[in-house]
Design a protein around this nucleic acid. Structure first.
Length: 224
DNA sequence: TAGGCCATCTGGTCCT
DNA sequence: AGGACCAGATGGCCTA
C-alpha cells in the first residue's frame, strides 16, 4: 500500500468514525456568534427552516426567555439529523467520485501508452482521449477516402439508388450513419477549434508519429 | 519551498 | 424529501 493510499485509508477511517458528539456541529456553518449560541436566541438552520425562538418575537409569551426540555431535545434531534444527512451526503459524494475515477481508469486502460509511462493525470487522460479519438476518426476517414477512389464507379451507382432522405441527416449526431466525413471533420476535428488542447500538426504529421505515443516524447506532449 | 495533483468536505442547485 | 451534480475550499503528498 502506497503512502498516499495509506493516508486516504486513514482519512476514510477518520470519516467512518466521524465524531458525532452532540456538543458541537461542524456542519453548522451558519453565522451564529458565540453570544448567540450561548443564549440560543437565534440560530438559522437553513434547509430545515429551524430556528430557536427569539423571546422578543415569540407569540408564546409564556415561554419568553426559556427553552423547555422538549425544545432542547428537539433541537438535539434536528442537529443529529443534520449530521446524519451530511455524513450520508459525504458518503455518496465519495462514492460518486470513486465511480468517476474508475471510469477514468478504464479510459486510461484503452489509451495507448507505454507500460513504464507514469500514470496520466485526469486532465491528460481526457485530452489524450479526445485527440486519440480524433486521430482514429481521421484514420478511418482517410481509409474510406482511398476505398472511395478505388470503388468510385460502383459507389456512384449505389448513391444514386439511395433515397434523398438518407442525406438529410443531423450532423450533430456522432451516431449518424449518413453524415459525410468532411462535414463531420469540419464540426469536430481539433484542427477546426481554437482551444489550446488541439493538435498543432496536420493530420499527415500526426499519422507519421508512431502510435502509441510515448508520454514524454515531443509528439505526445503536443497532443495534450 | 512553490506549484501541481488529488481526495474529501461542504453548501447550493436542480431533478425526480 | 432525498439524491445527483457541481464548484469552492482545504489539506496532504510529491516533485522540480
Amino acid at each position: 500500500m502506497s503512502p498516499k493510499t495509506e493516508s486516504i485509508q486513514q482519512r476514510n477511517d477518520r470519516d467512518l468514525y466521524y465524531d458525532v458528539s452532540e456538543d458541537e456541529d461542524p456542519s453548522c456553518s451558519f453565522p451564529c456568534s458565540p453570544a448567540h449560541s450561548a443564549s440560543s436566541e437565534y440560530c438559522p438552520m437553513g434547509e430545515e427552516g429551524f430556528t430557536f425562538s427569539n423571546p422578543r418575537e415569540s407569540p408564546h409569551k409564556k415561554q419568553k426567555g426559556k427553552r423547555t426540555r422538549f425544545q432542547a431535545k428537539n433541537e438535539l434531534t434536528i442537529i443529529k439529523q443534520k449530521k446524519n444527512r451530511r455524513i450520508k451526503a459525504n458518503d455518496r459524494e465519495r462514492n460518486r467520485m470513486h465511480n468517476l475515477n474508475s471510469a477514468l481508469d478504464e479510459l486510461r486502460n484503452v489509451l495507448p501508452t507505454f507500460p513504464d509511462d507514469a500514470k496520466l493525470t485526469k486532465i491528460e487522460t481526457l485530452r489524450f482521449a479526445y485527440n486519440y479519438i480524433w486521430a482514429l476518426s481521421e484514420t478511418l476517414r482517410m481509409a474510406d477516402h482511398s476505398i472511395f477512389n478505388l470503388a468510385h464507379q460502383d459507389m456512384r451507382e449505389t448513391f444514386d439508388s439511395l433515397p434523398k432522405s438518407c442525406f438529410m441527416v443531423d450532423l450533430t449526431s456522432p451516431n449518424s450513419n449518413c453524415s459525410s466525413s468532411s462535414d463531420w471533420e469540419s464540426l469536430y476535428s481539433p484542427l477546426s477549434q481554437n482551444d489550446n488542447h488541439s493538435p498543432t500538426h496536420s493530420m499527415d504529421d500526426f499519422i507519421s508519429q508512431p502510435l502509441p505515443f510515448a508520454r514524454h516524447s515531443a509528439s505526445f506532449s503536443e497532443f495534450l
